[in-house]
Structures are given as structure tokens and as C-alpha cells.
């Protein structure tokens, strides 16, 4: 057991200390989630921008379409849902970008643990940071657009479920375009068609409630889409990340 001084003269006991090739202590799902949450909270602008976009654009709608309450109320659900979709898309691009640029995405890919969990953690945080605030804010905008009385609660519920699926599907697009210089429009072009089912059943939920029927079935389908997206989208996104890292 020989000891030798290192750098600033402190003694260090050096003996074969290499541990066997056991997988490095890969951060568990909770540490991933906590780190992503701290990162997201510190980047305040990423939270506020999509909300501001959501509110300002919806405020412009009556100016463009005309303030007649009767017409606005018929279009309120569709407008709110399309704007929620666009603002999720707006904030989707930065999902992997900062990690790609500082190299931590590559470190994640090198972990012996599958990429599924880090991607899921990132998407969960993205949903909490953009999807849920959108949903909570939507009744306020429903009032502005004279949404029918029965529509507020289903709008909130459908947005909460819907934005989660939107974030998951959008993560695949974000992963595919992370290595490109200006992925903005391309991300929208490749992901928009995949958003169609979520949009249809999202607005369908609110429409059913406004027409007086129960909105349970539509909400159930939204939940089914979310379940499928939660299972498959991170896998596709993980594959896409490995492809982008090879670029």
C-alpha cells in the first residue's frame, strides 16, 4: 500500500481500488425528474412564453373574427384547442436542444440504462410546465370567447389529458430535429399530422358537452391515446435521439 502526494501535497492512499464493471450508478427516474424540474423552473422564460402566446393570440381572435357572442361561442372550443396545440408545439423545440448542445444528451445515451426513462422524465416536466398551466388558464379564455356554460369543465379535462399526448408525440419530432440548425418549421410540419386525432377528440369532448350529451366517451378515447402515446412515443424518441447523435 504505497502512498504518494498529489498536487497540493495531501497524502492519498492508493491501492487497486477499481470496482468491478458494475453499471455506473445511473440516476434513477426520480433524480432525472427532479433535475429536469429544477432546470425547467430555472428557465423561467420557457414557461411564460407559451402561455403569453396562448393568451395574446386568443385575445386577437375576436378582433379578427368579430365580437358577436353567438358566433364566438360556437367557435370557442375549436379556437382554444388549436391555440393550445400551437403553443405546445412552440415550446416543444427546446425539449432536447439545450441538452444536445452541452453534451449531456450524449452522456444520457451512453448510460447502460435505456433512454426511455430520461425521455419520459423530460416530457413529464414539459407537460407540467406548459400543458397544465394552459389547461388551468383555458376557462378564463373560455369566458373571453363566450364559451357555453357546460363547456368549461370538459375543456379543462380534455386539455389536461390532451396536452400530455401532444407533448409525448411532439417529443418524437423534437428528437428527430434536435441535430438541425433551425428545426422550428420542420418540427411543425412533421408533427402536425400526428396531432389530428388528439385535436379531433379534444374538441369533440367540449362539443359533446355543449350539445348536452355526456362527454365521457370522448374523454375516454383521449385517455386511450395518452396511454398509447406514453407507452410508444418515448421509445420512438429514444431511437430518434440515437439517430440524431450520429449526425
Amino acid at each position: 500500500m504505497q502512498s504518494e502526494s498529489v498536487g497540493d501535497g495531501r497524502k492519498r492512499i492508493a491501492e487497486p481500488v477499481l470496482r468491478p464493471a458494475v453499471p455506473a450508478a445511473a440516476p434513477g427516474f426520480f433524480t432525472l425528474f427532479r433535475t429536469e424540474l429544477t432546470l425547467a423552473v430555472r428557465r423561467r422564460s420557457d414557461i411564460v412564453n407559451p402561455l403569453l402566446f396562448f393568451v395574446t393570440v386568443l385575445a386577437l381572435m375576436p378582433i379578427g373574427i368579430g365580437p358577436e357572442p353567438e358566433m364566438l361561442s360556437r367557435m370557442a372550443a375549436g379556437l382554444i384547442w388549436v391555440m393550445a396545440l400551437l403553443s405546445t408545439l412552440l415550446s416543444q423545440e427546446s425539449l432536447f436542444r439545450s441538452d444536445y448542445e452541452d453534451g449531456s444528451l450524449e452522456q444520457l445515451a451512453l448510460q447502460s440504462q435505456p433512454l426511455y426513462f430520461p425521455v419520459l422524465a423530460k416530457v413529464l416536466v414539459h407537460w407540467l410546465v406548459t400543458g397544465v398551466p394552459l389547461a388551468v388558464l383555458s376557462p378564463l379564455l373560455g369566458m373571453m370567447l363566450n364559451l357555453g356554460q357546460a363547456g368549461y369543465w370538459p375543456l379543462l379535462l380534455s386539455l389536461v389529458l390532451g396536452t400530455a399526448s401532444l407533448s409525448l408525440i411532439g417529443a418524437v419530432g423534437a428528437a428527430l430535429t434536435v441535430a438541425l440548425r433551425r428545426p422550428g418549421l420542420l418540427l411543425a410540419l412533421i408533427i402536425m399530422p400526428l396531432y389530428v386525432p388528439v385535436l379531433i377528440f379534444g374538441t369533440g369532448t367540449v362539443q359533446a358537452a355543449l350539445d348536452g350529451y355526456g362527454y365521457g366517451p370522448q374523454l375516454a378515447i383521449l385517455g386511450a391515446i395518452l396511454a398509447a402515446a406514453a407507452a410508444l412515443a418515448p421509445l420512438a424518441a429514444a431511437g430518434a435521439i440515437r439517430i440524431s447523435l450520429e449526425n
Binding site: S98, D102, E106
Partner: peptide
């Protein structure tokens, strides 16, 4: 233990 061209250090942390 891999340290690549990009440091792998998250700027937000």
C-alpha cells in the same frame, strides 16, 4: 467514463 468535445455539463445546474 466519456468526456467528449462537448463537456456534458448542464448549463442550468
Amino acid at each position: 467514463l466519456y468526456i467528449g468535445h462537448y463537456a456534458g455539463v448542464r448549463r442550468g445546474l
